[in-house]
Nucleic acid binder design. Structure first.
Length: 678
RNA sequence: GCCGGCGUAGCUCAGUUGGCAGAGCAGCCGCCUUGUAAGCGGCAGGUCGGCGGUUCGACCCCGCCCGCCGGCUCCA
């Protein structure tokens, strides 16, 4: 008997009945047989479903097969490798710390982790010991075998029953309660879904058994020495639930070869250098102090960036038909009760007392903004009314989550509330979507991901209102084009809307591939109701306006952090805190240097002068480290012909006339030109 | 908030079994007057995160608190 499979290039392969993925690889060539770690298989009747299987998995007549190896950059291969690495780590930990209970150990981007319950806490110093033991497991070259067990036997293996040997030859009574819980859940899920209770797959390597879907490497020495590293230790709740037990999570990373691991570790180091907290200190932009945990202090240079951001922001908002308002930090508690914040948000709010009356520090701007709306009667002629507010809000975040400018306890939202008629809603949403893309592009973020979140389980308002609002949002997104002209892509996030209305969220992708939720557009029928705002229609009747809450950058503080990391501190010139630095070579050039400085400042360029009695090399170096885009060196030669020697972002550009340098830099700023990115 | 780690000069870090606290850079002063990424010399700088305890004696050991870092949960 024979069976036939098809390879990725379409060529057929005839194999003996019962042949495995590895047999197929061997039929192609001995080198491939050695390199094969798994197979990607599509069954004849189901070509769209591709399954990743072990190298030892049997093939079936008509299968489409592609061999997975560790050569090249097959993402499936990396995933399998890391998954096996997590098992090897668990095995090493069980050997070094007997009695440890193991929970789950999945792969993550660039690595893996495994959660454990240790009898005694371990420290980072123990990681070395674990790595050593992992090395032993690797060099023992244990075969990794898959077993399919009936539920009863699987429970006997991982349960706390008497030790022994089961029908499949596996040890019983391992006493691993997390695994038992997982198996019981698999059974419960199958029963709930009306499906047959599945067999349980486990993987065995030497003295280690784990519940796992697989696939895995064929044996432990496929993990080369020096290709994995344990990186950190952290706490993690069992199943991610705060109510559950806190387990110890061990993080690691693994690659197909030493070079890739080294490259990854180097990339981590580069990311550390891009850390906005470090850049903030080195460039003297902002600081944090024990006296105000989570409350950033902005320095003069940080405010230069801040002001560059909001000057641009303001100009764009004026152009888009917004007015700017400003509302107080502290308002009477009743307002927050009326708005629903007291009920839904008080754990994150700060409270105080004024003249024995209860007040709250604002965590959001909307209630204050609504009072502005209510300050006079509104006509349909006033609508749409677009009121923007750079509102500083305070939120009590849990101490463990604070992180530089990314997560703080006070921040400035680039907020706006648009009050409009239901008929105007669609146009207004469209306007915000366009403004959003326009603003992101100016900062150099062109990769924007959009999510539409619909009605959550717990919500207020009528079905009809929700349908209309969700319809409006999806209609806008469906009709809108991305800046490149292609249709706007978005993903649906059912049930993830705010309790008062559906929303569109905007995520920007930075140079390191991370995404950040910045913009949001939320349709709100509830707040106008609760605060009872109205407008007089053309019919002379009172009507309820619809309200849109929106932010583009989200938090100015956090956005600045994102910018700093995205550009590694080398901000586009229009955002740079110091755009040009004049460096006179010797004292006798100081007067000329001041003249150049004056010309730059006259043109609105943020320029400084470094006339310290330091060597020129030193001042160039400092200017570079401060990431000043333009260093303008002036000496005898330049002074004589009224030129400056331009050094642009580390590149010497030769000498040009002062006026030309000023024009060039001012032009770059005016056009908000972005640096070429690599 | 929870788990683990850390806290020595502005920054980066040394500090031997518990016995007078150190370096480099930054800062200040002086010299040098400079041609594209660190010129030379000197000086100053620390209640060793805070508070308690153990001890003849604590940066070092113990406890509590604060802050920071990495995660979890949460989130702009």
């Amino acid at each position: 008997m024979t069976l036939h499979v098809t390879l990725p290039d379409g060529s057929p392969l005839e194999l003996a009945d019962g042949a495995t993925v590895r047999d197929a690889a061997a039929a192609i060539g001995p080198r491939l047989a050695k390199a094969a770690i798994a197979g990607r298989v599509s069954a004849a009747g189901d070509p769209d479903v591709t399954l990743l299987v072990d190298a030892t998995a049997p093939l079936h007549e008509g299968d489409q097969l592609s061999i997975v190896t560790l050569k090249g950059d097959d993402p499936d291969a990396a995933d399998i490798l890391r998954h096996t690495a997590s098992h090897v780590m668990a095995q090493a930990i069980l050997r070094q710390f007997p009695g440890t209970k193991y929970a789950i150990g999945p792969t993550i981007e660039n690595g893996f982790y495994y959660d454990f319950q240790f009898a005694e806490p371990i420290t980072e110093a123990d990681l070395v010991r674990i790595e050593k033991e992992m090395g032993k497991v690797v060099s023992q070259n244990l075969p990794i075998e898959r077993h399919e067990l009936p539920v009863d036997e699987a429970l006997a293996v991982f349960g706390a029953g008497a030790p022994g040997t089961g029908p499949s030859g596996l040890s019983l009574g391992l006493d691993q309660p997390f695994k038992v819980e997982l198996i019981e859940d698999l059974v419960a899920a199958a029963e709930a879904g009306g499906r047959e209770v599945p067999t349980i797959s486990v993987y065995v390597q030497g003295d280690f058994v784990d519940l796992c879907r697989g696939p895995h490497l064929p044996s432990t020495n496929k993990l080369g020495s020096g290709t994995f590293k344990l990186t950190s230790l952290a706490g993690a709740y069992w199943r991610g639930d705060e109510q559950n037990l806190m387990l110890t999570r061990v993080y690691g990373t693994a690659f197909a070869n030493k070079e890739e691991l080294a490259a990854h570790l180097e990339a981590l180091e580069l990311a550390r250098e891009r850390d906005h907290r470090r850049i903030g200190r080195d460039l003297d932009l902002f600081s944090f102090h024990e006296e105000g945990p989570g409350f950033p202090f902005f320095h003069a240079k940080g405010m230069r960036i801040w002001n560059a951001i909001i000057d641009f922001w303001r100009a764009e908002h004026v152009a888009a038909g917004y007015e700017e308002i400003r509302t107080p930090q502290i308002l009477r508690r009743e307002l927050w009760e009326l708005s629903g914040h007291w009920e839904n948000y008080k754990d994150n709010m700060y409270f105080t007392e004024i003249d024995e009356q209860p007040f709250a520090v604002k965590p959001m701007n909307c209630p204050g903004g609504l009072l502005v709306y209510k300050s006079r009667r509104r006509s349909y002629r006033d609508l749409p009314l677009r009121l923007a507010e750079l509102g500083q809000v305070h939120r009590h975040e849990m101490s463990g989550v604070l992180h530089g400018l990314f997560r703080v306890r006070y921040f400035t939202q680039d907020d706006a509330h648009i009050y409009c008629t239901p008929e105007q809603l669609e146009d207004e949403v469209r306007g915000v979507v366009r403004l959003m893309h326009h603003i992101y592009a100016a900062f150099g973020f062109s990769d924007v991901r959009i999510e539409l979140s619909t009605r959550p389980g717990k919500s207020i308002g009528s079905d009809e209102m929700w349908e209309r609002a969700e319809g409006t949002l999806s209609r806008v997104l469906d009709a809108e084009k991305a800046p490149g002209g292609e249709p706007l892509a978005y993903v649906l996030n059912p049930g993830d809307g705010a309790f008062y209305g559906p929303k569109i969220d905007f995520h920007i992708r930075d140079i390191m591939g991370r995404t950040w939720q910045c913009g949001t557009i939320q349709v709100d029928f509830a707040m106008p109701e609760r605060l009872d705002i109205t407008y007089t229609g053309a019919d002379n009747e009172e009507h309820r306006p619809v309200m849109i809450h929106r932010a583009l950058l989200g938090s100015i503080e956090r956005f600045m952090g994102i910018l700093l990391e995205h550009y590694g501190g080398n901000l586009p010139t229009w955002l740079a805190p110091v755009q040009a630095l004049v460096i006179p070579i010797a004292d006798r050039h100081a007067a000329y240097g001041h003249e150049v400085l004056g010309a730059l400042r006259q043109a609105g360029i943020r320029a400084d002068l470094d006339e310290r009695s330091e060597s020129m090399g030193r001042r160039i170096r400092d200017g570079q480290l401060q990431k000043v885009p333009y260093l303008l060196v002036v000496g005898d030669k330049e002074q004589e012909v009224r030129e400056v020697a331009v050094r642009e972002r580390g590149e010497q550009r030769g000498s040009i006339l002062i006026d030309d340098a000023v024009d060039q830099i001012a032009g770059e700023i005016r056009e908000r030109r972005l640096p070429a990115q690599t």
